[in-house]
Design a protein around this nucleic acid. Sequence first.
DNA 1: CGCGATTTGTGCACGTCTTCACAAGCGCCT
DNA 2: AGGCGCTTGTGAAGACGTGCACAAATCGCG
Lengths: 248, 248
Amino acid sequence: MSQQRHGSTPGQSPGGRSGAVAAFPDLPEATIARLPEYLRALHNLDDGSDTISSEALATAAGVNSAKLRKDLSHLGSYGTRGVGYDVALLTEQIEYVLGLDQRRAVCLVGVGNLGHALAGYDGFASRGFRIVALFDADPARVGERIDGLTVRHIDELLQVAAEEPIAIGVIATPAGAAQSVADALVAAGVTSILNFAPCVLAVPPGVDVRKVDLAIELQILSFHEHRKASLTALPGGRAAAGKEAVGS
Amino acid sequence: MSQQRHGSTPGQSPGGRSGAVAAFPDLPEATIARLPEYLRALHNLDDGSDTISSEALATAAGVNSAKLRKDLSHLGSYGTRGVGYDVALLTEQIEYVLGLDQRRAVCLVGVGNLGHALAGYDGFASRGFRIVALFDADPARVGERIDGLTVRHIDELLQVAAEEPIAIGVIATPAGAAQSVADALVAAGVTSILNFAPCVLAVPPGVDVRKVDLAIELQILSFHEHRKASLTALPGGRAAAGKEAVGS
DNA sequence: CGCGATTTGTGCACGTCTTCACAAGCGCCT
DNA sequence: AGGCGCTTGTGAAGACGTGCACAAATCGCG
């Protein structure tokens, strides 16, 4: 939420979406955001069963079962009434919709503290992505080898992208550098950006930006702390309640 | 969004909120999530002006100006018609609502790759938080000094929390350890958790959890890539459009 | 074959969020 | 003092997301 969605200005095409090729059932954005969670829950299943009910999967993913069913129904019903969902089939279907079978190329810009951590994150490979290049603007960092990849100078981005198209760019630079890095990524053909820098990025239509900001998350939590504290002692203090088991 | 909100089950207090102490104007959750963004935009202003219009601030924060005005109106109108908002006053007001003047204590559990990066992140201090302790379960890591703090064993958590109340805990452990760490944090009196581990946490009512998951963000971007790719060549390919200037 | 248990898929109602459009208020200039 | 331009604050409408509750579909068993 609250992100720059995808750049295309809506309500522009004169003829509406008449003969259009909206090749994808337009999934609600909220549904899309939950699909990866379902996928993770599916991967974490270790009971031998071939099928899983919406109730069980919903619990594992931390959502309401009705919501889960509605989400899955949007991508065309792969469940069997009275039985549940075929785990293998559902997994494959979600991965297809998310385009994870393509193993998209990702590049990471900014190999500082955070960049190092991201480069070493094994969630990339295990979730269907390939880090193909690391960049930094600091000459002192260029040449360093991290996790099998050599850090290259940001000026080489265009050249690297020419050899192999890069779909997704991750920005882990200071805020001051983020916009120019974003511009460079766009110029190199990147059409999706994950931005860890605490600033707003301007990008042309058609480029998606998602933002992750630690400070914002903390401040939201801080608000709830503040609110809780101001509610002083309210009586009905029931102790710990449900504690749904969730596989690791 | 799509988070476990705050644990308290709604619609429980029998008498409604009659004589209640809902000490806080219930701000919409969506508004709260944007306040930190406004705050950052305010801090980044470097023109000497004492006031700023909703239009200008909205642009700097990357949102619609009507939305910004409505958000700010929820916290009680600190603008002057025909002029704009008093920068200093507005900043102070937002910081108060978010409870940032309290400089809440934060502890970080899990000093691996990501944990190191987080511990070194200066956004903590600069945004009104104090990291007061680092924990890890690995004895090999205990004792290490990071950024002026010594890593302690997770078993000391209760003891440390007894000395100084800790409001917020950050989990940067592998998924397998996250739930037990969350339990320990809750037992130590932590009431807000920021979870970087890719798993669902179960917590008692009254405890807030927010989750940040890199892999999920990438998968959402991947979906949009997939969709864009499937829309093949659609004709009206207008080039780069607006590029709102955003201070660093 | 028929029945009951189970589970999906979905119509509907409700609450939340967004956006437009405009009245109300403020300051400045004449 | 009066008028004008600018900007806030907000009513209303619409889009979106959520969750209940139930009909429809499937399996297993006698």
